Simulated assay, not measured.
Amino acid sequence: MSHGQKGFTLIELMIVVAIIGILAAIAIPQYQDYTARSQVTRVVSELNSLRSGAEAAILQGRTIVSADTPGVGEEDLGWTTSNLVDGTGKAQVDVQNGGTATPTVAVELGGDAGANVAGVTITLSRNANGAWTCGMTGGTAAQGWKNSYAPTACPHS
């Protein structure tokens, strides 16, 4: 009476490990791209949420600021804090031309953002007709930036 062999042979185990290695080699870069894209999209969304406050301030003739204690004639945009943006608190947002009908609001990715998107600046600009445009600058292929990380409505230049 012979006993049948039970368990896996060494070659079968090596094949399984090789298959897992191949799958991981494909999945890890895809996951990193997904993470970078979602971080950029999240910050664009956070920045876009400030547009209604900016519009209200413009209609009331106030100067747009990002400050804990806005002065007389100033309107705070309402930014809280994002862990994906450089700086802390209200200082994370850079407001230019806040007292005009054509303000610019910008943030720079950093903090907990991935290394491949850190240093990218996202800018919202309003033209005199009231249309807002979004754009991105910074980020290089050498650091891992890919233009596919930018949402269609906020292209990278």
Rank of each mutant, 00 (worst) to 15 (best):
G135V: 04
A115C: 02
M136G: 12
R126E: 02
V120S: 11
P155W: 08
T100D: 05
L124Q: 00
D112K: 15
N129P: 00
P155S: 07
V93T: 10
M136R: 11
G99T: 13
G135A: 12
T100P: 14
C134D: 03
V93E: 05
G110Q: 03
Y149K: 02
T123S: 10
G110A: 03
C134T: 07
V95G: 02
P155C: 06
V93A: 08
G98T: 09
C154T: 07
V95H: 05
G114I: 01
Y149L: 05
E108P: 07
G114H: 09
S148Q: 09
N147A: 09
N97W: 12
M136A: 11
D112P: 04
T123A: 04
A153Y: 12
W132G: 04
N97I: 03
G99Y: 13
Y149F: 15
N129E: 13
W145S: 06
G135S: 15
C154D: 04
G138F: 10
N116Y: 01
T104H: 11
A113F: 10
E108M: 15
G130L: 13
A150F: 08
N127W: 00
N116Q: 08
W145R: 09
A150C: 06
G135W: 02
V107W: 06
W145E: 04
T102M: 12
C154G: 08
I122N: 07
S157I: 09
T133V: 13
G130A: 11
N129Q: 15
P103M: 04
A142K: 10
V105D: 03
G98K: 06
I122W: 08
N147Q: 06
T140Q: 02
P151R: 01
T140F: 00
D94H: 02
P155L: 05
C134G: 12
Q143G: 08
W145I: 09
K146G: 04
A153V: 12
L124R: 00
G99I: 14
T121N: 05
N97F: 15
A118L: 04
G114W: 01
G119S: 05
V107K: 02
A113P: 11
N97K: 14
A101G: 07
R126I: 05
K146H: 09
T121E: 08
T140H: 00
D94C: 02
G114L: 15
A101I: 11
K146P: 05
Q92A: 02
A106S: 15
G138C: 08
A101F: 06
P151C: 01
L124T: 00
A106V: 08
V95N: 03
E108S: 15
P151N: 01
T104C: 10
W145D: 04
T104P: 10
A115F: 08
D94T: 15
G135M: 08
A131D: 13
T102Q: 13
T133I: 11
A118D: 11
C154L: 09
